[in-house]
Design a protein around this nucleic acid. Sequence first.
DNA 1: AATATCTATCGTAATATTGCAATATACTTA
DNA 2: TAAGTATATTGCAATATTACGATAGATATT
Lengths: 111, 111
Amino acid sequence: MGVTKSDLFNEMQNELATVAKVLAHPARVAIIQHLLKSNACINGDLVQELGLAQATISQHLRELKLVGIIQGTIDGSRISYCINPVRWTEIKNQFNELFDQYPTAIPGECC
Amino acid sequence: MGVTKSDLFNEMQNELATVAKVLAHPARVAIIQHLLKSNACINGDLVQELGLAQATISQHLRELKLVGIIQGTIDGSRISYCINPVRWTEIKNQFNELFDQYPTAIPGECC
DNA sequence: AATATCTATCGTAATATTGCAATATACTTA
DNA sequence: TAAGTATATTGCAATATTACGATAGATATT
């Protein structure tokens, strides 16, 4: 159906999946990395940086904003986007909570 | 178009996005967590555990297998699935490489 | 061998995502 | 205020994902 039965899963599972979905596009990863490097940038820059249309980038920015990874403040006629540090740490911890449920690899240990 | 222009992005960005896409469904997160807990399980168990049809779960397992997060070995008429520990660590490091490009949150520091 | 069990695959319907041109909105500057 | 610049939104086409019934293949049990 293309529709996820999210009522079957717990909150942690749904939340992690939601955040993962936002990271599940290379353009959004690229946007994040660009913001990490420049610690503030704008839509216009990104259109040059990545090779996507302005409308497409604006759409990706909206999704990143929706899960709170980035935040934007109006700066004259432009908008300064940057990583939301609190949310960033939150997400990092969310992922590591999952990753740390398994000890570091011991090759050949598994089935 | 629904088609990702992956040639615009670098390998790290494409790979991270690919792995994130696999984690971007709560059923797959749930499957992973179940495997983490039981350290080996099978398709049949999961049909009981989650409320999804057998065909659907098989499909999710295939995607997890495709990116190497899990591996399955034939065990009579059943299949034992488990986390691939080496790949697991690889993925964990891949995410943390991104996460660690930003220092831990200092609230109110951003724009 | 016949039957039951377990898992994978196929086919299909419903929905979601990606990308962009066109357009709207909002601020700036002349 | 008019023109220019920056960003968001809308509408649409192409493709991808999710889910499941039906079915196939493979092993186990009787």
